[in-house]
Design a protein around this nucleic acid. Sequence first.
RNA 1: GCGGUUGUGGUGAAGUUGGUUAACACACCGGUUUGUGGUUCCGGCACGCGUGGGUUCGAGUCCCAUCAAUCGCCCCA
Length: 433
Amino acid sequence: MAKQTFQKPKGTADLLPGESHKWHFVEETARLLFSDYQYQEIRTPIFENFDVFARSAGDTSDVVTKEMYDFHDKGDRHIALRPEGTAGVVRSFVENKLFGPEFSKPYKAFYIGPMFRYERPQAGRMRQFHQIGVEAIGSESPALDAETIAMAVDFFQTLGVADLKVTINSLGDQESRENYRQALIDYLTPFKAELSADSQARLEANPLRVLDSKDAKDQEFVANAPSILDFLTPSAQTHWEKVQAYLDALGIDYEIDANTVRGLDYYNHTIFEIMTQSKVLGSGWTTIAGGGRYGGLVEEFGGPELPGVGFGIGLERLMLLLGEADAVLPDAPALDIYVANQGDGTDVAAMQMLQAVRSFGYSADRDYQERKLKGQFKAADREQAHYMILIGERELEAQTATLKNLETGKEQQVKLTDLYTALPDYLEFEGEE
RNA sequence: GCGGUUGUGGUGAAGUUGGUUAACACACCGGUUUGUGGUUCCGGCACGCGUGGGUUCGAGUCCCAUCAAUCGCCCCA
């Protein structure tokens, strides 16, 4: 009978040692930077009640209608793996009454973790993928919109990602949107028969999405369509102008794209996307971060009427991008000291030395395959060890060890007791630490 | 969900119109040097060609199915 083999599920990935430190670096960069903006990490469940997502993302969004990983658990609860981060955070915000007076407003939180969407995998798109996201709940201020965008831009700049395009748009408030919606329907309906099948369907369900269409013919019609920005109510217009004023003041480059819509239905006022046209992510512009202001969500979950602003960054896409511009991502951490041994009775001494080295805070490794010295040197090379401490029969006899700098090749005999008491005095890391 | 391409060892990759022992390179392991590395030379390393069927005297090479990877669409981060 053939051996049974397994493959990871379609659209998933193994993040292996040798690769994981790169993710840590990016995640750590986010943690540090976001804390400068007074955001703290929130960790919500990876699965929620199905309705948490169904209610928030919008009934017409593909994310809900066809991409959700949902199932009934043994208690017959309808559960879904989170397809995005905002809904869970808002649910948590309400459930934990974080809108209470003892919490500062806006309530700021960021998350890092896996999301799940049942889609066909592609470059930078997985079924289990990861997002870094932020949410700030409880402020109407356009300054917060601008700050949120600035923070996203800051993050990418900190990582050294270049050639990004920031596009912003305003969806206005409820009233703006309804007025515009009607105007758009009035404009598009005469052309309905000529629109793509998808767009025809969207014209009924969610006309704003037609603006998003990549169909060449659709785009011709869209080009002359009325702009949402001409339908903003006075207060929405004021908000919109302030956001731009703040961004200008901060020197952030952006483009206004009245056709940017975004897939989740809960957005209003400011929405934005950060895009790249790097070929590692396929042809054309690919969004690596997107977000905006949303209203009604907190209420939807049974909380007070509070708005939020946030964004999500696709980590797989970001890692692909960073992988292209090597030098940005750190190399695998090098080993400080390799402890080699050779000959009868040296094994125990090497083990003791190994632990002693570690107790000084250095990383250390040894051979576990009874390889000869040559093999141990090779292993040390592979791990990019800075030093080797060699304990052979001769050394053991003399109660010393050979300390060799593997980069310069220089070696010296050092008494074991000296290494045990003052190892750092014998080491010099060139340009490290 | 739709369409294209691909699937041979740890990796890259040869495998003519189906025909004995699956090339080569890198990596790895061992030896060359019974105490020293990133050099040289020698040797070792695929019970099997994604998986399951089928055609055939005979299939990695043909057919069907299936799984996966990859690209585009849809959608999105």
